[in-house]
Design a protein around this nucleic acid. Structure first.
Lengths: 144, 144
DNA sequence: TATTGTTATACTCTATAACTATA
DNA sequence: TATAGTTATAGAGTATAACAATA
């Protein structure tokens, strides 16, 4: 339980500290929220990205998420083993895989997204609706 | 380069995505800022905490930073090897160590903190002074 | 020759359990 | 018996290099 005052304020007020602990807290809430669907907070973004049909290849999907292409292989392996996605060689460029959601994958994606949304709202609970939106906007401006 | 629009917005607008990538960006900037002082973004908070004399033991320091006490051992090993801190058995309770900054440690702490502050300001560059303060306040409210 | 997916490998970070010395 | 520090070990997560198939 970090305090805002006292001698420790010098460290608990740092941006790195705040971002790390905010991320840890979201991780906990997301773990609980997604456990019923058998997926992790790490896997949901992959499902979302695949559903969008934005990435034309595994490699593009990996870049989009800021992970290595070799990590994407392992991620898709587990998602395929769970029956949530299928990989097929791209007929146009057979070096590539076309990755798509199964019917189960689409169902899990839809319900898991709602659960994840709830986890986000719980994290932002201490903030007003307006402040929560400001936080998202600020982070978006930094990452953009 | 994440976009705010297009099919990928569904994933790049998520809180987890925003926090992760903001953290990654701060990590890069901090790595560069602290490299001249021979310490990492992970080690600076330890120095700050020790300087505050808030933790009465290594264990309390570890709790404060949200890391394991066994990780604190390794952290202090490297900081001691760099000549930035010294460990001495607590005369009152000889199971504990009293950890203090060396003169070099105090000098590095002072200058590294300024460099870290600059890195934070650079990260928050896209934000107005007011929005930057709002961001800190919002994160503090969530972590508290 | 370059690129996609894959595999093998190693490296970092962290957590768990067991040991020691003190209390 | 409980606690602080330490050590050894193992488990994630991730990155690097090399390989096969295809362009």
């Amino acid at each position: 339980m970090p305090n805002e005052q006292g001698p420790g304020a010098a460290v608990s007020g740092r941006l790195g500290y705040l971002l790390k602990h905010t991320g840890m807290r979201l991780q906990e809430l997301s773990d609980q929220a997604l456990a019923p669907f058998g997926i992790t907070p790490h896997e949901l973004p992959v499902l979302i990205l695949i559903a969008s049909h934005a990435p034309a290849s595994q490699q593009q999907a990996a870049q989009r998420l800021g992970i290595d292409r070799t990590s994407m292989v392992a991620l898709l392996d587990t998602l395929e083993a769970k029956g949530l996605v299928v990989r097929q060689p791209d007929t146009a460029d057979r070096r590539r895989n076309v990755v798509e959601l199964t019917d189960t994958g689409q169902d899990v994606l839809r319900r898991a997204t709602l659960a994840s949304d709830a986890a986000e709202r719980e994290l932002l609970g201490p903030l007003s609706e307006e402040d929560a939106q400001h936080l998202r906007d600020a982070l978006r401006a930094i990452v953009a």
